[in-house]
């Protein structure tokens, strides 16, 4: 299917980007180092939703729920288990996000297109209201704070994170997730998802159980979003209801559109672009930065539906 030459070119590019991202914290000043780490985490969240938006053709406006549940799952593990354990936080976060994703998937995949988008939005608001009002467990409006777990390999070592090692850890998780997601999208399963996007009735007519595929796609997407939530919780040492709020889901959609849907790399680039825009415009517009960013986003929807990296779509999916 793919010519060997372009494939080696792809891996070359991948290695270069990976090396640059790994070297970034060593040369960048504190502020920008943190910035790059955040881009990676938001990029992972954006990638997870690309499985739905770009590959299956379902716009999810509810990814904040999975992300937030990942955060609160990690918080639960870090607050209840002594000593705090990174891998347990990861496990709890993934379980939290996975359960919620299964729940949402079961109901939301009964609907298509716009109805799916609205239903996911409504679901994320349900979890927002629950988390916001259930103060005894979730800390309500203030959220939960906890201490950063050390990086540990059971029975071998346990070292506290420094900003640089945390960046590498995040980079490793995100890179592995990317490779895994890329493999999934190229697998027969991923091909079925793409055929659902292209023509759902025909896919069903061929004999695929479309609903099952969609449910698995939403769960998969939710798990990776939860993973991003765990990373964000570990980096920032808190979980807050703001991150379950619909605005985060909206930003995730913006990342996808800006970067280029259906490329996996595009959404990461979109996250970087959005965060950069926010940084730049915050200096001029202070908290009203969403006015110019919203205008740019709307213009991109109308005039540049492929996004920044859309022109690379073919090459990136080889």
């Amino acid at each position: 299917m793919s010519a060997p030459r372009s494939s080696s070119g792809y891996w070359m590019g991948f290695a270069i980007v990976l090396a640059l991202l790994a070297a970034a914290p060593l040369v960048l000043p504190e502020f920008w180092r943190r910035f790059v780490t955040e881009i990676l985490i938001w990029g992972l969240l954006a990638m997870s939703s690309d499985i739905l938006i770009g590959y299956t053709g379902m716009i999810s406006f509810g990814h904040s729920a999975f992300f937030g549940l990942g955060m609160y799952g990690a918080a639960a593990a870090l607050l209840t288990v002594r000593p705090p354990n990174l891998w347990l936080a990861l496990l709890y976060g993934l379980i939290g996000a996975g359960v919620i994703a299964a729940f949402v998937a079961y109901f939301a995949t009964r609907l298509r297109d716009i109805y799916f988008a609205i239903t996911t939005l409504v679901f994320s608001q349900i979890f927002y209201v629950i988390i916001f009002t259930w103060t005894e467990v979730t800390g309500g409006e203030n959220g939960l704070t906890f201490r950063q777990p050390p990086f540990s390999v059971p029975a071998v070592l346990s070292v506290p994170f420094t900003p640089v090692t945390l960046h590498w850890f995040v980079l490793a998780v995100v890179a592995l997730s990317y490779l895994l997601l890329r493999r999934i999208t190229q697998s027969p399963f991923g091909m079925v998802l793409q055929s659902i996007r292209e023509n759902e009735p025909r896919t069903r007519a061929i004999g695929y159980h479309v609903e099952r595929y969609k449910i698995v796609a939403v769960m998969l997407s939710g798990l990776f979003a939860g993973l991003a939530g765990v990373l964000y919780a570990v980096q920032n040492k808190f979980a807050a209801p703001d991150f379950v709020f619909f605005l985060i889901s909206g930003e995730v959609v913006i990342f996808n559109v800006m970067g280029g849907m259906g490329t996996l790399v595009g959404p990461v680039a979109g996250a970087a672009f959005f965060l950069l825009l926010r940084e730049v415009f915050s200096r001029f517009f202070t908290e009203y930065y969403l006015i110019p960013v919203g205008v740019i986003f709307t213009l991109m929807v109308v005039f540049m539906p492929q996004g920044l990296l859309g022109f690379l779509r073919r090459r990136l999916n080889q």
Partner: peptide, 28 residues
């Protein structure tokens, strides 16, 4: 109007962008 004939989902995205602008405009 420029989106007529495109995937209806793009209209969600476009109107979402508009809502961001309008909401923050009102705040400002």
């Amino acid at each position: 109007r420029p989106l007529v004939g495109r995937d209806p989902l793009t209209t969600i995205l476009a109107t979402f962008g508009i809502s961001l602008v309008l909401q923050n405009y009102a705040l400002w």
